[in-house]
Design a protein around this nucleic acid. Structure first.
Length: 296
DNA sequence: CTCCAGGGATGAT
DNA sequence: ATCATCCATGGA
């Protein structure tokens, strides 16, 4: 089994994979198994080096691109993390989160998988989003590996678009099934061309995404941030809303979603997506659920 | 058991 | 434009 190394400075693999960006990586001994697009891999971090083994598909076919470059791109090892952190605002809340999230990078995920999993994320805890991803991959994905660690690759839009709403409801999606199916059909037909949307400016891209069933401002911003390299995108979920209202405004002040988005754009700036991810992860990992202050 | 989760679509003000 | 309500499911 061939293995290779990838240099990774200012990077924390476990922290990054546990930060709620991606939902399919699983701990396997000292490393993690998962997939990057169609490539299934086992990745273990030792210091500043990633040790990578590929989990071969049962029928390996055509020529394949070099994996080291794919790894580096997926984990965004080229992001100038020190520069990005230095660009974040110098307020106490932000700096506490920055200190807590050293080595956390915003990954570059495949567009369809990212879009699909965040459609399933609405009103779901991270643990259950992972469960839904698991069942979708198990039932409808393509399997790599014969024995030992198996990896099931996330099903394509064509695959999911060919299913019925009941097939998806049976995976625990609830009311999200209809939306995922409808969006999968649009992507599969080419009516929604996720790849070509790369070229669009932020506002146009967000509008395209929000026109898809099951996609509103929050999910659109997640997909922009995690799959389109739009580091300004600032998704506001219940956690982030709590942090913003509690730490950046007075507790019982009323703000519209629009006002909140305007504030984040101005205060957190060009790397707002990193700010958001650090605030999110810090809050989620350090706030005891019972003691979490209730807003509203 | 209850409470709530990386929200969105819809219809009423 | 903003708000209320509903939508399914399961982790904690």
């Amino acid at each position: 089994m061939k293995s290779f190394e990838v240099a990774a400075h200012d990077f924390d693999l476990a922290l990054t994979l546990d930060s709620g960006q991606t939902f399919h990586w699983e701990k396997e001994g000292p490393g993690f198994v998962g997939a990057i697009g169609e490539r299934a891999v086992n990745v273990e971090q030792r210091g500043n080096v990633l040790h990578v083994r590929e989990v071969e598909p049962s029928s390996s076919g055509s020529q394949r691109a070099a994996l080291p470059g794919i790894i580096a791109r997926y984990f965004a090892l080229d992001h100038p993390l020190a520069e990005i952190c230095a660009s974040l605002p110098d307020d106490p809340t932000m700096q506490a989160a920055v200190g807590y999230c050293r080595g956390l990078r915003i990954m570059r995920q495949p567009r369809w998988e990212c879009l699909a999993t965040f459609i399933t994320s609405s009103m779901k805890q991270v643990a259950h989003i992972r469960q839904i991803s698991f069942v979708l991959r198990k039932r409808f994905g393509t399997r790599h590996g014969i024995r030992g660690a198996q990896v099931d690759i996330f099903p394509s839009a064509g695959k999911l678009g060919g299913l019925t709403e009941k097939d998806l409801r049976d995976c625990g999606l609830g009311y999200r099934a209809k939306n995922l199916l409808a969006t999968a059909e649009r992507v599969a037909s080419g009516e929604a061309d996720l790849e070509s949307w790369r070229a669009l400016p932020d506002d146009d891209l967000r509008a395209k995404l929000c026109a898809l069933p099951g996609v509103g401002p929050k999910v659109a911003n997640c997909v922009m941030l995690f799959a389109y390299e739009r580091l300004r995108a600032f998704p506001i979920d219940v956690w982030i809303e709590r942090v913003l209202l509690q730490k950046y405004f007075s507790p019982r002040r009323r703000l519209t979603a629009r006002q909140l988005q305007e504030f984040t754009a101005k205060h957190f700036g060009e790397n707002g997506g990193y700010a958001q991810q650090y605030l999110f992860h810090h809050a989620r990992k350090t706030t005891p659920r019972r003691l979490s202050p209730r807003v509203r």
